[in-house]
């Protein structure tokens, strides 16, 4: 196990290097430069812009800059923002907890609901509950999260307020002025977490249902029932444990979508996370921030995949990691 873990972690290094190289190359082929913002400013002469470019190291070829960037990163220095000169590390520290809070909440929300719903609709196959679950999960699976987010925001944020009902905040991670306690943060979290989680919830429910159906048909379940175990014991002790395995793989595979979805959800709800940081820095040609933000998202995905594989090995003794 330890050896497997070590090997996987070592394999992450070339993967992350490859990703960083691709992303850095793309970023630097983008037309436009951080000095564009001074283009029409009377305070800056062309010579000033040239000096700034020189100072930022933008006149070197991009592959030279990549290696400089890389060696700085290994020394823990992510550089400064090209636009407002704050340390990139600080920007990540400000946004990463918010992204983790959002994605973590929606992951837990989706898992906690999809597991019981999926199991129950497999057990009560073709019942009213099963059919409505199937219809709902297909319906939610296709929903564009941009639109879902906007409509929820209009309904619960704007319309509820107009109708004099208790409403939810329309964006941000917390109320900026005045009270900002725990409940306030929860209120801000509800809509974005729901928007982000509902698609995974729909997909996973269908998946758990079908893998439960596969497992229930197998002989060891019949044996367990035949020896007189209670239904609950058969379901939880035998069936569920086996149905859970493929779910781990699926959760691992969905992580890129989860972090990708976070980019969109964060933008819709003005959630101050890594995704929104990515978008803003790309719009401003702020390469150093964009680079760090994209690498952060890729890193989270890679680590998440690793965790999913390791969990798989822990849960399934047939898988020999080594």
């Amino acid at each position: 196990m330890a050896r497997y873990l070590l090997r996987r972690i070592i394999l992450m290094v070339p993967l992350m290097l490859g990703i960083s190289f691709i992303v850095y190359a793309l970023l630097n082929l983008v037309p436009g430069s951080p000095t564009d913002q001074f283009e029409f400013s009377s305070n800056f002469t062309p010579a000033d812009r040239e000096r700034i470019r020189e100072n930022l190291g933008l006149n070197d070829p991009w592959y030279t800059r990549y290696f400089i960037w890389l060696s700085n990163v290994f020394q823990g220095d992510l550089g400064n923002s090209f636009v407002n000169y704050t340390p990139v590390l600080q920007r990540l520290k400000d946004t990463l907890p918010n992204t983790l809070l959002l994605t973590g909440t929606s992951l837990v929300f989706a898992l906690l609901l999809s597991i019981p719903i999926g199991i129950w609709s497999a057990v009560k196959r073709n019942s009213f509950f099963d059919r409505s679950t199937t219809i709902l999960s297909v319906a939610f699976y296709s929903i564009p999260s941009v639109w879902l987010g906007l409509m929820l925001l209009i309904l619960f944020g704007v319309k509820f307020q107009e109708w004099g009902l208790p409403s939810l905040p329309i964006g941000g991670t917390q109320t900026l002025r005045g009270e900002s306690g725990f409940w306030d943060r929860v209120q801000h979290l509800i809509l974005p977490a729901f928007t982000l989680g509902i698609i995974q919830l729909a997909g996973w429910t269908r998946y758990i249902r079908s893998s439960m159906l596969d497992v229930i048909r197998q002989d060891f379940i019949r044996t367990a029932q035949a020896k007189g175990l209670r239904q609950r014991a058969v379901l939880m002790g035998h069936a569920f444990r086996n149905a859970l395995l493929p779910l781990m793989t699926l959760v691992g595979l969905t992580l890129p979508d989860l972090f990708g979805g976070a980019v969109i959800t964060e933008e819709v709800f003005s959630w101050n996370g890594v995704g929104r940081l990515t978008i803003n820095s790309l719009i401003q040609n702020d390469y150093s921030v964009a680079m760090a933000a994209i690498m952060m998202l890729a890193f989270l995905t890679v680590v998440g995949n690793l965790l999913a594989d390791v969990m798989y090995g822990v849960l399934d003794p047939r898988v020999r990691l080594g």
Binding site: I19, P256, L282, I294, L297
Partner: peptide, 19 residues
């Protein structure tokens, strides 16, 4: 393919459309 799948697609899409 594994490498491309590991990057959250939307960030690369944003990058390429900026490009």
């Amino acid at each position: 393919v594994d490498m491309i799948i590991a990057i959250p697609g939307i960030t690369l899409l944003l990058l390429l459309s900026t490009l």
